[in-house]
Each structure stands twice: as C-alpha cells, then as structure tokens.
Design a protein around this nucleic acid. Structure first.
Lengths: 225, 225
DNA sequence: CCAAAAGTGTTCCGTCTACACCCATGG
DNA sequence: CCATGGGTGTAGACGGAACACTTTTGG
C-alpha cells in the first residue's frame, strides 16, 4: 500500500462507552475502578483502544460486547474528545458512545468480573480524565432522542407495564409527568401493544403488560413523548 | 514522558470543516477541488491533519482561520468518522465540524486562492470519501440548533432586515414560513433590536435594520423559532 | 377491610396557523 | 402612476396541562 500522508502525526484513538441502564426507578451508568496506570483506582468509564482493522463503530460495539456478552446493543456516538492533555498518560483522542441495555439482560458475573458498578445518574463521582463531560453530553443526547425515537424499550424488558415505562421516562428527563396524559399519548401509538398478560409483581391488582412492536412502528414511524 | 500505551495502533487524525454561508437567498457550503492524491480533482470539503500540539477544536479553528482569515468563527463538532476504508489513501480518522460565516466577511481573494466555491446546499455534487455524509449530518445538526439558539446572526451582516432573517431561516429549514407569524415571534425576543437605520437596497420603501444584542440575550437566553 | 397501585375523561387555556390589505417610494 | 417589497391584526383550530375518583386484590 502506498502511503500518501507520511509527514503527519499519528495518535492513539480510544472509544469510551457510557452504558445506561434502568433499575429500581433510577437511571444508572456502568462505571468501574480503573485497572491500569495512569489513574489506577479512579472511577472511570470503560473503554478500549481502536485497532487497525476496525471502524470506530465496530470498536465501540466490540467494547460493549466484551463487557456485556450482548450483541445488537443500541449505541450512538456522542462525539470526539481531543484536548491535548485530556489523558494524563499520553495523548489519546477518544470517541465516546452511549449505549442502552436492559439491566436484567446483563449477567451479574460479568459485571463483577470487570469490577463495574451501576451508579445513579444523579450521584456520579468524579471520574477519570474528561469522563464526566462525556457522561453529561451523552445524557443530553439521550434525553433528546428519547422524546422522538422509541429507544426507551431498549432499557426495559420486552414485556413492561405502563407504569414502568413512565418511571423510566421520568428518570431520563428528570421530572415527573401526569399519569393520565402520559397514557393518553401511549394509546395513540399503535406500536405499543397491550398483551393479555398481567404483571402481578408490582401490585395486588396487577398491571397489563405491553410490548413494543417494531414491525408496526416501521410502517408508521411516529413517536412523540 | 513515560509512555503507558505502547502496544496500541496509532492513526492519522484529520478535521474536515463544513462552512455554511448565506447568499442570494440560498444556504451554501464551501467546497473545492482536492489538490492532492489520492482523489486529486474531486470535489471535497476542506480539511487538515491534526498536529501533536493542538486539540481537535483548535485544529478545526486553525483550519478555519487558515482558510478564511477570520477569527472567532462559530463552530460545532459534528462527530467522528472512522470507517476503515473511508479514505482511499491510508487510514484516516476524521472529525467533522460545521462553521457559520457571513459570506460578505469572506475575502474573495482567499476563496479563489484556495480554489473554493460556494455551492447551494441543494446542489451538492458527489464529494470525496464520506464527505457527503458529513455535510448531511452537519445540516441536520445545524437545523436543530437554529430553532433554539441564536446562531442565525452568524450568517448575516451585523445589521439585517427581518426579510433577510426570514429568508435565511427558510433556506435552512427548507420550507416557507408565514411573514406575519414570523415577525410576531421576532417581536417577542427583546434581544433582536430594531435600529433607526433603514436599508434602501432591498426595496424602494426601505426596510428597518435590526441588530442582535448579545448582552440582552444573555440576561434571558430564550430563543425559539 | 384497607392499603397500594392500576386505570380512566373532561375542561380550560395558551399557542400555532391561516389569512389580506395598505404603505412608501423610486423609476 | 405603478410595481415592488415592507409592514401590520384577528379569529378559529389544535394540542398540552391540570385535575380526582373508582377498581381490584393480597394480606
């Protein structure tokens, strides 16, 4: 292969993933103690270096898979972070991605093995490098998306109650919403289907379980919360 | 300096800038014929490699300044583009930025010297590498921003008529809006100030010139179009 | 029988939209 | 005197927000 751009500087490039999960009425992020120098022991996002044979998206997907064992995780780029001194070790340009997973799909053994914790989005400690900034940007992006695209379902089990959906939405946007108005909006979306199944765990009376029907959604992709 | 991350691959990193301008009722982008191999002669965005002593933002700002001679250009990151084969020459990871300038501030000599042309956003030819994708993403981002933040003024002279402002807005969102409704919304924003000056170029009667007052805006930053 | 969550409609108010005519002036 | 763009108000439709009570059942 010919090299055209010889004279220019090359950089380490990493991806850092902000993994969101929803649990016990709270929106959480997976973070862990950094296991290498520099910054060993500090709270940090999970990340990895990009290798020559993978695109940035692939690198992020691989990182997510390595961490969770899950494939086809919903994932979006947050942006590139490139301050000269952002990494105390050496110059590294990092591309952040956020991902949404259902906490129950995530094997606890894997979580512990990687030394990760689910931390409430409102109680995030100081993180390594510029990771707090990354989390903030990711949240902003996700908040926008969740109002116009059906990504909530990525954070919930495939069967869920309307109360669960509402609690999730409230946790993401950070404010409470009116139950009747919320359910009215849901009723207008045909791709959120009521099943015959009843969830008896959450209440004595039991709550109807709903399902997101992606096929119906694709016929008329209109989502608005 | 200690090196911590020895074993990993390094990459060329570039920035590519999507420079928007508004002229003759049209939203335009600055593109030029690529002046190096590979892809010499193809239409392309302007870009440059990132060097060791500058952040990504600085690299983008430098690229913009080199090109236009202007400082303090409004500029936002679009995102990182990192497909393995995106550049036909060698692997390059590129971070795209969009920028807004007032066409009249831009020295024509500089434009010609760099071989650049203002091209209507609706008539963009096939560009080098993934640059069409970058432009599309930049437009989407800019369209969102222009509805909630006072960035329109970056594309206009410091004194402008309401018709100019409306034409700009229409060009960006790609549809026509009602004159009276538009002006009603503008009236509600105190930071868009009417001056005593009259523009006589655009019509026989003359049109009042307005100005964006940033100080007033900062006291109550509410913008909604 | 009672605590706890599920489920359900209506009214009001503010916002958005549609719409048409007169004004001032240069040529 | 007329062509051209500048400037202005109102009424009706629509969508979002506020709001309270009944149902079911496990313990």
């Amino acid at each position: 292969m010919t090299t055209y751009y010889n004279e220019h500087q090359k950089f380490l490039v990493s991806v850092d993933v902000i993994i969101f999960g929803f649990d016990e009425q709270k929106l959480k992020v997976l973070i862990g103690r950094r296991q290498m120098d520099p910054g060993r022991g500090e709270w940090s996002l999970y990340g990895g270096f990009v290798s020559a044979d993978e695109s940035l998206n692939q690198a992020a997907a691989h990182t997510l898979e390595k961490l969770t064992g899950l494939k086809d995780i919903y994932m979006r780029q947050v942006g590139a972070f490139g301050d000269v001194d952002r990494d105390p070790g050496e110059r590294v340009i990092s591309v952040a991605y956020y991902a949404l997973i259902n906490v129950k799909d995530y094997d606890e053994k894997k979580r512990v093995k990687h030394g990760l914790e689910w931390v409430d989005i409102n109680k995030i400690p100081t993180l390594y490098s510029d990771h707090n900034l990354m989390v903030g940007r990711a949240l902003t992006k996700m908040r926008q998306k969740i109002k116009t695209e059906p990504i909530s379902f990525r954070l919930l089990p495939s069967l869920f109650t309307l109360t669960q959906l509402q609690r999730l939405y409230e946790a993401v946007i950070g404010e409470q919403v009116d139950k009747r108005n919320f359910r009215k909006r849901i009723k207008d979306m045909d791709f959120i289907e009521k099943t015959n199944l009843i969830d008896k765990k959450s209440s004595k009376r039991g709550a109807a379980l709903y399902r997101f029907n992606n096929k119906v959604y694709n016929e008329d992709p209109n989502f608005k919360l």
